[in-house]
Simulated assay, not measured.
Amino acid sequence: MKPWIGLSLLLAALGIGLIGPALQASRSDVMYRDQVAVLMYHHVDETAESSSTITPQLFRSQLETLKRLNYHFITLEQFSAFMDGSGEVPPNAALVTFDDGYESFYTKAYPILRELRVPAVNYIITGTLEHPKETYIPSLSRDELRAMRKESPELVSFGCHTDSMHGKLDNGDAIMTGRITRGDGSPETEDTYRERVLLDTKQCLQKLGELEAGGSDTLAYPFGITNRQASAIVGDAGVRYAFTITPEMAVPGVDPLRIPRINAGSPNISPEGLHKTITRRIVRVPEQLKSKAHAGG
């Protein structure tokens, strides 16, 4: 009997294979590396109906399904390290983000995130912090933000969704990228526009910083709308990473002020459908970009 055959028989008798099932499973479970599926949500509620509202049951089912399929949920801190090249992310990495800072994040989503140990970042319209329960959909209060950060700082962080620029002008342009009409009927000047966006972004970051909310150097654009000029201004205001709603994967080399996200927060997105959407957007990351990211370049 050849030595390797004898070894195989011995290992088999002990219930051990030369390539064990666990190792085989770990290989087959790797769908992608060196990229992140950034998932976008808004409102979680049992009865409210909109294209950006899902039930707590669907939210839980999505997260449980992705975990079962061996997705690895990462923190905003891990994502930031991946983006600047100082750290790596696990295979099948996913980052959960919420926009608008609704109170339902605290009452509906957060208990599920805490139970499943899934990190998330919520992008807050900080102007609503002054009167959080007077908004159309009740918003998070300072006390609720502080409570989550105190209880689960490793799971929950918050970023900027502007201070008072979440809206659209009469002509349909986003307030963040359009030009406001002045009292005399003339549009604001380029200098005035830049100062408005710069000041609003700084105010948003400052308010979150005062709450020690974590992630206060990141921003999600209202409606996902931006342009080259607006992105440059928020960068000058202190934003390192900004998110759009372009449905792609975040990969090394992506513009840090125009990071894509995949919508997960629609009531017609089933857990299996979300998984399929992510897998359809997996890209092949060139080796030189992998090396640059891992080298901190």
Rank of each mutant, 00 (worst) to 15 (best):
M1G: 00
M1E: 02
K2D: 02
L9Y: 06
L10H: 07
L18A: 12
G20F: 00
L23H: 01
V38L: 01
A48D: 02
S51W: 14
I54C: 05
S61A: 15
S61R: 12
T65V: 11
L69A: 05
L69Y: 13
E77P: 10
A81I: 15
E88F: 15
P91F: 14
N92P: 10
N92G: 12
V96H: 00
G101I: 12
Y102A: 03
Y102P: 00
L116W: 01
R117H: 12
V118F: 02
N122V: 11
N122C: 11
L129H: 13
H131S: 05
P132S: 06
T135I: 00
T135G: 00
L140I: 04
S141Y: 04
D163R: 09
S164E: 05
M165L: 15
M165Y: 12
G172V: 02
G172T: 05
E190C: 10
E190Q: 11
E190H: 11
T192P: 00
Y193M: 04
R194K: 08
T201I: 12
Q206W: 14
Q206L: 09
K207M: 08
G209N: 13
L211W: 12
S216G: 07
P222H: 04
F223L: 05
T226Y: 02
S231K: 06
D236L: 15
R240P: 08
Y241W: 08
A242N: 09
E248H: 14
G253H: 11
R258G: 06
I262H: 00
S270V: 01
E272T: 04
H275Q: 09
R281N: 10
V283D: 05
R284F: 13
K292Y: 14
H294Y: 15
A295L: 13
G297E: 12
